[in-house]
Design a protein around this nucleic acid. Structure first.
Length: 934
RNA sequence: GGGCGAGUGGUGGAAUGGUAUACACGAAGGACUUAAAAUCCUUUGCCGCAAGGCUUGUGGGUUCGAAUCCCACCUCGCCCACCA
């Protein structure tokens, strides 16, 4: 059949329907409705000066498809839109061009709005919000106030991440590889008084709540790791000797005096290794450093501290070479009673645990490195149990080593069981190779007879090598015959080998034995490390403790373009210069962001420069009262916006209880995975606080979360202005149409995968749309009637699983078929409905042409008839011994016997069956039959 | 260093235990046209004239049957990274 392919006028069609939807408020979310609801949300858009690029619509289109689909299923759909308008880029740009950020932001929002409108997203524009609008940030301030009034917001002086370029502090989550997440400048550490939200109070709930969420597993894992829960113990080490503070001033050597009341607290997850703690290490910033430093060591300690401060955060993070300095003082190991030296080193972090550690060099790689470098004692206290896989290290001489590739496989002579000994890369193990032996095989290994290695040469050749006397010599020398059957006895040669500085062996045999057996630990010898940990902590005065990597959220910013923090510093009466903080009364919110400000960054909040900002404060809060000058992190604004959408015009509450109860939680949330440890964590925290305080009846905001993959440049690189590979959606829409862009972005590949842009690809999609447009219904086309029901099933299943790419390919197949066989009007109608969520403009146009008066999105989603899915004849593949030899057309209800008979009669099989006996057959109904012959 | 994910034609990818390479792009040839564009038709994993054989990063395993499940290795990507 020959069908003329006509191009449709996408500009005309798309403009027409966008106008229609706006005029009819087609996508209005209805409040006070008794239908079930569906809340579909895109991550908040930041209206940058660059406008959209083609990456943005990918996530938006997916949300749009689900929203339109649920609308056709009869649900009350809310698909809101709004702007994360406060923030540094707008302010920095404002400084650059000398215009107020409010004005620039307004222009950016206008541009973004126009761009997303051109893409035909089914937004409810009546709910549009902007975080820079006083009607919005009033409630951001209310949330701050509510947290403050309930003890969840507080001020403290602490080391904070300071961006020297943007002249503001940053939260931990905003420091990427030691650099500012906005401008990529290296971040410094500055001690400053700042505002924090107590997110750490919710650490356990934030971990626990993840279990019930339908989120990507990797995102959940990312949050768990970021929160970083560790169970352990805090232990106190008494300082044994240190100089008397004022002694030595007259030139005499200071006396070493015992101070019972000076203690160093450490956190450890391995209290079981306490007997092996041979020194303590403090972070250079630790409060006790000055007290503990002896006069002889003072010069060196000071030098070290200055050197550490000079190091950028980045250098300090990336440097793995251990550095440190002895304080001159000692502490008592409570288990052994021995004096152990106290050191300072920057491998101990000031902001984790207590900023001090007990070092167990035998069982911690970092402590080991440090101990080797500074010649500190190493006492092994754990051996690996024989019940688990064993690592071993074997020495080889230099010439043998050269023959080896990285892959060495060993096995036993027995043959009935296997030991595979995968050797890691030999890097760092200059004269040793190492491997793993599984449980039960260690004895055979320690009996060299009958055990041999297969060496794999670089050319792939395998060579067997027995453990000869020569290799045995090496093992003797390097201790690979180490025997842990008798805990506590370590062969002499292990020690001698350690003395030679063979790190590799030490790491493999002694590091991280999580379930080993204790040695050198007096009464605890022979116990498993797991059971001993709590006992040892208890006996020596320790307390069980849970420690988190997560820190409280630092939310104050010394910048202009944000929501002012609603706090007033009130002078304490009768004591000039002393202040207490109070939150601003709810009736006085919002604290308006002043406009009479020079917002050049100086390190002080620009609000200090406003004359109007402090007006009336003294009158209300007393003489000397001043407003807080910092603004809030924009992530505070974006951590509750999804609540505001439920009731965006409410002037007395952030949203009414009834609207929250109906609309929340969000059913589907789509956005980038880069927000895992920022926005997604903050939003969950704010919801949990408001839940705890009784404002919300749910404690998780986003039930189902999905991430879109990036759209890369045609060259496969990330799109960026500097690379010149950015594709502007405006041009694509103009040339190919919004529908073609939407469909192409869904067709490219799996939704969560990053994929390169291809202009040829979108041309192909546009060709398909032209073909769809050219389909003309006819009276009869029976073969497509069955096919459309299969397609309904396929599309419905795929849309729920967000497998958009296969929706498009199946539809293409179907349309190709219709070109060959024709299509009836009811079938075309169903097809157009199935594609309407993806290509809404063209679908409306075709539906209109078919004679319907109302929008296709008022129509019901097509249902398939299961009876029509059953085929009269199916093709069954015929295999002989697992190899395909022919195809058979049979009825799906035929018995296996009947099909086997038909199969053996196939001429194509005769060569494969002649002279052979069919022993067995396996039949998968309607799919395949496999004949086993001998 | 740790965690997670992925390796299938010239390209993006489909198939998650049952006919591998659907769909699309690109390429080649043809039709229409004065010509081009557009459109349509044919071919298109590799080797082979064919019969047939081979093929889902590599090597093993489980199974009647493996891209799919298991083990090991290699490569790439993302996230975290001195967290005691």
């Amino acid at each position: 059949m020959k069908v003329a392919i006509k191009k449709y006028n996408h500009q005309k069609v798309e403009r027409k329907w966008q106008k229609f939807w706006a005029a009819n408020q087609s996508f209005k979310a209805v409040d006070n409705d008794n239908r079930p609801k569906f809340y579909a949300l895109d991550m908040f858009a930041y209206p940058s000066g660059d406008g959209l690029h083609v990456g943005h619509p990918r996530g938006y289109t997916a949300t749009d498809i689900l929203a339109r689909y649920h609308r056709m299923l009869g649900l009350n759909v809310m698909r809101p839109v709004g702007w994360d308008a406060f923030g540094l880029p707008a302010e920095n740009y404002a400084i650059q061009v000398g215009q107020p950020p409010a004005k620039l932001t307004k222009a950016n929002i206008a541009r973004f709005s126009q761009q997303v409108k051109a893409l035909g997203f089914a937004y409810d524009w009546d709910r549009e919000i902007s975080t820079a609008d006083p009607n919005y940030y009033k409630w951001t301030q209310w949330i701050f106030k509510t947290l403050y009034d309930n003890g969840y917001a507080y001020q403290k002086e602490a080391y904070a991440n300071w961006c020297p370029k943007d002249q503001t502090v940053l939260a931990n989550e905003q420091v990427i590889d030691g650099r500012c997440y906005r401008c990529d400048t290296e971040v410094e550490q500055k001690k400053l008084k700042q505002w924090f939200f107590k997110i750490t109070d919710f650490a356990d709930e934030l971990i626990g709540g993840l279990d019930k969420l339908d989120w990507p597993e990797s995102t959940k894992m990312g949050q768990r790791n970021w929160i970083g829960r560790s169970e352990g113990a805090s232990l106190k080490f008494q300082v044994a000797c240190h100089p008397e503070p004022d002694s030595g001033s007259d030139g005499e050597m200071p006396k070493q005096v015992r101070h019972d009341d000076w203690k160093i607290e450490v956190f450890t997850t391995r209290a079981d290794t306490l007997f092996g703690a041979t020194y303590l290490v403090l972070a250079p910033e630790h409060d006790l450093v000055e007290k503990l430093t002896t006069p002889e060591q003072k010069a060196e300690v000071d030098k070290y501290i200055v050197a550490t401060q000079k190091k950028s955060a980045l250098d300090r993070k990336m440097a793995h070479e251990k550095t440190g300095v002895f304080t001159g003082s000692f502490a008592v190991n409570p288990a052994t009673g021995k004096d152990i030296p106290i050191w300072i080193a920057d491998y101990v972090l000031t902001d984790y645990g207590t900023g001090a550690i007990m070092a167990v060099p035998a069982h911690d790689e970092r402590d080991f490195e440090f101990a080797k470098k500074f010649d500190l004692p190493i006492i092994p206290v754990i051996l690996k149990s024989t019940m688990e896989s064993r690592s071993f290290v074997m020495g080889v001489n230099e010439s043998d080593l050269k023959k080896l590739s990285a892959k060495v496989v060993g096995k036993t002579s027995g043959g009935d069981f296997k030991i595979e000994i995968p050797f890691d890369q030999l890097d760092g193990y200059k004269q040793f190779i190492r491997g793993v032996i599984r449980p039960g095989f260690w004895n055979e290994f320690s009996t060299p007879a009958g055990f041999y290695f297969i060496f794999k040469h670089k050319d792939g050749r395998l060579e067997e090598m027995e453990l000869t006397e020569e290799t045995n010599d090496l093992i003797d020398r390097y201790g690979a015959t180490f025997n842990d059957e008798q805990p506590g006895e370590i062969s002499e040669n292990v020690y001698s080998w350690l003395a030679e500085g063979a790190d590799g062996f030490y790491r493999e045999l002694l590091i991280h034995p999580n379930t080993g057996v204790l040695i050198n630990s007096e009464e605890f010898n022979g116990q498993s490390s797991k059971e001993a940990a709590a006992k040892i902590a208890k006996k020596f005065g320790g307390e069980l403790k849970v420690q988190y990597k997560l820190h409280d959220w630092l939310i104050s910013r010394q910048r202009y373009w944000g929501a002012p923090i609603p706090i007033v510093y009130k002078q304490i009466s009768g004591s000039a210069g002393q202040y207490t903080t109070v939150s601003v009364d709810e009736a006085d919110l919002p604290v308006m962001l002043p406009t009479d400000v020079d917002f050049q960054p100086t390190g002080e909040s620009p609000l200090a420069l406003s004359k109007k900002f402090q007006a009336g404060v003294a009158k209300k809060y007393g003489r000397g009262a001043r407003r807080e000058l910092d603004t809030m992190d924009t992530f505070v604004c974006s951590s509750w916006y999804f609540l505001r959408y439920c009731d965006p015009h409410n002037t007395s509450e952030f949203a009414s209880a009834a609207s929250l109860k109906y609309w929340m939680p969000v059913n589907l949330y789509i956005g980038g995975s880069e927000h895992t440890n920022g926005h997604l964590l903050y939003a969950r925290f704010i919801v949990k606080v408001l839940h705890k305080l009784g404002y919300l009846d749910f404690d998780e905001p986003f039930l189902k979360l999905r991430h879109q993959g990036l759209i890369l440049g045609a060259d496969g690189d990330k799109m960026s202005k500097s690379k010149g590979n950015v594709v502007n959606p405006d041009e694509v829409v103009e040339v190919f149409g919004a529908d073609a862009l939407r469909m192409y972005e869904m067709f490219m590949g799996p939704f969560d995968q990053s994929l390169p842009w291809s202009t040829a690809g979108i041309e192909g999609v546009r060709r398909f749309l032209n073909r769809l447009w050219s389909l003309k219904p006819m009276a009869k086309a029976p073969e497509t009637d069955r096919a459309i029901h299969k397609l309904i099933k396929k599309v419905t299943e795929d849309i729920d699983q967000m497998k958009f790419n296969t929706i498009v390919s199946s539809s293409m197949e179907f349309v190709n078929r219709c070109f060959a066989k024709g299509i009836t009007k009811p079938t075309l109608e169903k097809l157009v409905k199935l594609l309407a969520p993806i290509v809404p403009h063209l679908a409306e146009e075709i539906y209109d042409k078919l004679g319907y008066e109302q929008s296709i999105f008022k129509a019901a989603w097509p249902q398939f008839d299961p009876a029509l899915l059953i085929e009269d004849l199916v093709k069954v593949a015929v295999q002989v011994n697992g190899r395909l030899r022919g195809v058979l057309s049979v009825s799906p209800t035929d018995s296996e016997d009947k099909i086997r008979e038909a199969a053996t009669a196939l001429p194509a099989l005769s060569a494969h069956l002649s002279g052979k006996q069919i022993v067995k057959s396996h039949y998968v109904p309607g799919r395949i039959i496999n004949l086993i012959v001998e």
